[in-house]
Amino acid sequence: MSDTARETDATVSFDCIALDCADPAGVARFYADLLGGTVSGEGDDDGEWYDVLWDGPRISTQLAPNHESPDWPRGQQQAHLDFVVADIAAAHERVLALGGTALDPVEPPRPAPERGFRVYADPAGHPFCLCRPTKDAWG
C-alpha cells in the first residue's frame, strides 16, 4: 500500500454529535424545532437513535435509560453545543416554549448585554449556548 493510500484510509471527518438521554425522540424534536430542522426516521429498530437534520452538523440522540443530566454550573457540563442567533430575546422565548431551561442568566434578555452568550439546557439537561453572531451584535 502506498503512503498516499495509507493517508487516505486514515482521513477522519466529522459525522455528528450524539447526545445520550432517556427520551431520544423528545430531545431530537426539541432540537429540530429549535433549529428549524427535521427528525430523521423513527429511530433505529429499537427506537434508540434519532437524527436531527438542519443546515448545520447532524445532531443525534441516543437512548441511555439511566442518563443523569449534567449538573452545570455546580458540576461538569461534559460537553455543550453553541448556536448563533441574531435575536436573543426571541430565541430565549422559543427555547422556553419548547421545554428548554435558562441556566445562566435565568432572567429574560436585556438590550445590549455585556456578555455575548447565554446558557440553556435542553429537556434532558444538556447545556447549550445561544451566542451573538458578532462582537457588536445585540446593541
Rank of each mutant, 00 (worst) to 15 (best):
F14L: 12
F14W: 13
D15C: 12
D15P: 07
C16S: 15
C16Q: 15
L19I: 01
L19M: 12
D20A: 06
D20T: 01
A22Q: 15
A22F: 11
D23G: 01
P24H: 07
A25H: 13
A25Y: 02
A25C: 08
A25G: 11
G26W: 10
V27I: 02
A28S: 14
R29E: 01
R29H: 11
R29Y: 04
A32Y: 02
A32D: 03
D33A: 05
D33T: 06
L35Q: 11
G36P: 12
G37P: 03
G37I: 04
G37L: 01
T38R: 07
T38Y: 06
T38I: 05
T38W: 02
V39E: 09
V39I: 09
V39H: 02
S40G: 08
S40I: 06
G41R: 14
G43V: 03
G43M: 03
D44V: 07
D45M: 14
D45K: 14
D46K: 06
D46T: 07
D46A: 10
G47N: 06
E48M: 05
W49Q: 07
D51F: 14
V52T: 09
V52A: 03
V52S: 01
L53D: 11
W54Q: 08
W54V: 04
W54P: 11
G56S: 11
G56K: 13
G56Q: 08
P57Q: 14
